[in-house]
Amino acid sequence: MSTVVGSGIAATDFLGAARRNRRNTVTLVVVMIGIGAVLAYLLGAVIEAGEGDPRFNPAASGVGFGFAMIMIAISLVWTLIALKAGDRIVLRLVGAREVGVDEAPQLHNVVEEMAIAAGIPKPRVAIIETDALNAFATGMSRDRAAIAVTRGLLNTLNREELQAVVGHEMGHVLNLDVRYGTAVGVFVGLIALLADGILRLGRFGRMGRGRGNDKGGGLQLVLLILLIVAAILAPLAAKLVQMAISRQREYLADATSARLTRNPLALISALEKLGASGVPFAQANRAVQHLFIVNPFRDFSAKASALMSTHPALAERIARLRNLG
């Protein structure tokens, strides 16, 4: 009964797909923290090697461990702060306007239906005035979420397709993807910041404080090269992991939509309409591109499953949905 499509999820059941996906995300987040910690460790080791202590062991640098711990701690604290601070900002960023029941009764109904199916409070409802076909969700918790759709989407999709798209966004709310995305974004930012600082320090030669006359100096040089290579590669790796997480969450939101509506065919036909539409989305902002149902900046067909994209290729998403249906 189950057939494998592409790599990753080969699921015919919603819950299994969701479980596997959550596991993938956890692994990716751990990898992300690991990248930051390794980078911080290398920096600490280089500095400790510079002290010139003959008993220094590069594999067990106390300063390195200390730096790694500090890096992890900063990551967690920063994440907490980011989670507390604004989510309404995102709505304003893309020009979404909150609408009342009188203005968009059907949209409100559909959102409420999906909230009931998910068993969570009804999110706020907003509309983006553009002919482009897109939708997105925001909100740090299930109790304070918002779902926005474009005017073009409202005009183009039928009720069932609209429901499927809202179900996808409800999936993001239900799976706390906004929180995940913010946390991961913070990691990526931190790693980039640290790497940037290291490279700058390296350029000005401040780390070569060691006298350079004993073997500690040679060891430090090796570590320094390692550190610079890591500082160049880490932000890239972090970015790759971030995009991989984003794509996993899209698959999960698709699967959640199918679970909520029990109607994967509606989502398939909605995605096909979204893919066929060539209307550009002018107001979209790169900082929030991962929150949309389809990436507002890419054409979805060609290399959309490339490593640096926030969304999987539409064809791949549709193939997995057919698997569920």
Binding site: P105, Q106, N109, E112, E113, I116, A117, Q163, L260
Partner: peptide, 20 residues
């Protein structure tokens, strides 16, 4: 029309609430 939409939506809500 608006009553029909309300009823359709209510039918859906009943179905989804039952599912949940």
């Amino acid at each position: 029309r608006s009553l029909m939409e309300e009823l359709t939506s209510t039918e859906n809500k009943i179905a989804f609430a039952r599912q949940h």
